[in-house]
Amino acid sequence: MKKYFANIWGTITTLKTGMGITWRHMINIKKDNVTLQYPEERWPRPERDIGFEHEDYNVIRSRLHVDIDDCIGCLKCERACPVDCIKIDTIKAPTRGEDIPDIGHTGVTENGTNKALVVSRFTIDMSECCYCNLCVYPCPEECIYMVGGPNSPKHPIDYEFSEFNRKDLIYEFSKPLTSEQKSELMNPKPDAEA
């Protein structure tokens, strides 16, 4: 009989303890919360210094970038790409090696090459890219390269590549051209040629 009441008393007190624990967690949710509302809140990013200088450690494969002013439209990277995520369209420039300020086209690259082509489209679909780095080696102007690694001075680290829309993962590097500008480049007027 004594054990029976001791059991009941034990039940009541232990249940009270358990309920106290959940109650404390519930009212302290502001403090104890472990969930991050991801797109709005993020974990703090670790320091960029990993003990290497960027030059010593620039093979980190984070994200492709193209300096479009240096691109001569040779399509070597497009051919090298094993997953065909690079798409390049080119139009013959009216005069070789001359700037076209209307569309932001520069005639001469940093290496001194005169450009014969206007790159009208240069897109990299980062959802397809396999980060193999194979497009970087053939580039004669060294204008396509991986960026965003630790210590990279030029570009911010983007380790997520997360977008709300899948189309936003197609990175457009060429200068935007309207269809009139394109047709003007493709069919140069006779007096402009003269």
Partner: peptide
């Protein structure tokens, strides 16, 4: 309430879409 008791926030409507 179940989320709060487990230190989570439960259904939240933040973000786009």
């Amino acid at each position: 309430i179940s989320s709060f008791m487990q230190d989570k926030v439960g259904p939240m409507g933040q973000g786009v879409g």
